[in-house]
Design a protein around this nucleic acid. Structure first.
Length: 275
DNA sequence: GTCCAGGCATGCA
DNA sequence: TGCATGCATGGA
């Protein structure tokens, strides 16, 4: 991959294994939207970004080489050899067509707090609604970065928000879960930096101290927010896909079950109708 | 009007 | 330990 700094925009060429729209819109991150055809806009790590893709060329419009090195390279996980991982997945005949069809979905390395709170809200909910709620939440309690762009609110900021305020933003019954999550992260009862150092079972247990965090939400937080690519969230869709794997997952997924899971998830949402 | 969504906590057997 | 049920809300 090559990088050219072009007066306030960065041109990445020969970007391997990257489908921008699929990656931003496959239900792992909720603060990206397609502003116009092929042009995506979003916020992560307190930075706004606009970007687009043509073939294996990606253009980042409003950033610097410094921020790319510091934030976006890691966020898009560009140092990881996805081609090699996906190639090994092709050994599984069940997922082969899906991998080829949706080639280039990457797991974003999101902020752990943002991923955790986002998936607390995700329970028994749909992606469109998760998006709109998190946008309202950010507008209400996040730092303003520009006229219409707000950072994801910090745990400290949300810990001071009364439960009823979450309810009035449309959180529904999850209002108390959001509150508990913010309080426990803000006061250190749940220490995200420490959880990042734990093995998977311990990390799950630590996250599940939060009201509203069960096995699935914990797994999503670990996969999407802690870079645990061996985490494997099972939701309603994945449950249906797993009916095709009565003997468990194939060994070619080992260590990267979470990546395989995201292809399964996308396949299911695109191809399996309502149950 | 009915069903469903990246589940979880709770109560009961 | 295992299963059924309620839970808020808005879009299809």
């Amino acid at each position: 991959m090559n990088i050219n700094d072009n007066h306030g925009s960065l041109h990445l060429t020969n970007v391997p294994c990257f489908a921008l729209a699929l990656t931003l819109d496959c239900g792992q991150a909720f603060r990206w939207h397609e502003k116009e055809q092929g042009v995506w806009q979003g916020v992560a790590n307190n930075k706004a970004l606009t970007l687009s893709q043509i073939g294996d060329e990606v253009i980042l419009y409003n950033t610097t080489l410094e921020d790319y090195q510091k934030i976006w390279k890691n966020y898009f996980d560009f140092d990881r050899d996805y081609d090699a991982i996906l190639k090994s997945f092709l050994q599984d005949s069940l997922l082969r067509n899906t991998i080829q069809q949706y080639y280039g979905i990457r797991i974003l390395q999101q902020d752990s707090w943002e991923a955790l709170l986002s998936f607390v809200f995700s329970s028994s909910n749909n992606i469109k609604r998760i998006r709109s709620f998190l946008e309202r939440l950010s507008c209400a309690y996040g730092e303003q970065l520009s006229e219409s762009v707000f950072a994801f609110p910090t745990a400290q900021a949300l810990a001071n928000v009364p439960t009823e305020a979450f309810r009035s933003l449309g959180a529904g019954y999850r209002d108390k879960f959001l509150h508990d999550c913010a309080v426990k992260v803000a006061n250190g009862t749940v220490n995200l930096a420490e959880i990042a150092t734990l093995d998977l079972p311990q990390a799950r247990q630590a996250l599940m101290q939060i009201d509203g965090v069960g096995p699935k939400v914990a797994e999503c937080a670990l996969l999407f927010g802690f870079g645990r690519l061996d985490a494997f969230p099972v939701d309603r869709w994945i449950t249906r896909v797993l009916e095709c794997y009565p003997h468990g997952l194939p060994s070619c997924f080992a260590g990267f079950e979470g990546i395989a899971q995201q292809y399964m998830f996308h396949y299911a949402r695109m191809n399996l109708g309502a149950k």
